[in-house]
Amino acid sequence: MGRIINIIKDFSLVGKISLIALVIILIIAIFAPYLSKYPHDKPVASPLKSPTKEHILGTDDLGIDLWAQIIHGARISLIVGLGTALIAGVGGSTIGILAGYFGGFIDKFLMRLADVMIVLPELPTMIVLGVFFGSSIYNIIIVLSLFSWIKPARIVRSKTLSIKEENFIKIAQIYGAKFHYITIKHIMPYIFPLILISFIKLINRAIIAEASLSFLGLGDPTSKSWGLILNYAINFSGIYFTPYWKWWVLSPLIAITITVVSIAIIGREFEKIFKLKI
């Protein structure tokens, strides 16, 4: 933990701003129910009100407060982002270490599996799976994870391969150290930065993927994520010829953009500091 704080101190100004933005979004997501006096799923005012003091982002066509929807949507985006990144990051790294360390049949099997997943066209398959399993937020996390473990797995594998040939590992093995011990003590410290950066990128990927799925109308229709708000807004007949887009389209769009951009910048900062580029 102390190591990460030190790294953050080395961030550039833009990096620090992004981090603050992300922390704010995180806080908003966690305390969402306390930050709005209106529910995110019930009409409370007349439809399509422009932003006022009462409704700082206005209301949508059903009269539901948009601020309440946006902060609730932050929760969904972050749950999907973190959930997918956790499953795919941990799973992918484990697979990468196993393949890199043991080599042979295990390596071949796991890497061919990864090849198969890379060949599958991502969005169409996600759409099919989403339709097939039904669109709940958990299913979306699982489907996204299925497609996201490959990159961390490959990166971790190649790093493991090169570390494995180092002399100190060879010596540890001669002294009888087993896979478990070597991974924790010797391999992890080397691949931790890689995993961290992959993790951050996975969050971003998942947030965008969820937004696109919802935007296409394949997300969880009851979840009111940012993508879904955008989907409803854009499907409103002639939205760009009315003033409503100014709050209804822009607010979810800006929320997605801020989140994704700040996460991307944080990822870049880590890359710079670790002198790594993946």
């Binding site: 990159k151 490959r154 990166i155 190649s158 990128k201 971003n204 965008i208 769009l253 997605i256 953009t257 994704v260 951009v261 991307a264 990822g267 870049r268 790594l276 580029k277 993946i278």
Partner: peptide
């Protein structure tokens, strides 16, 4: 580090695409 270029591009793309979208 195989995919260095690809992912870097990815980052830029996100920025550019969101800009164009707006």
């Amino acid at each position: 580090m195989l995919n260095r270029k690809g992912i870097l591009m990815g980052n830029k793309n996100i920025l550019i695409i969101s800009f164009i979208l707006i």
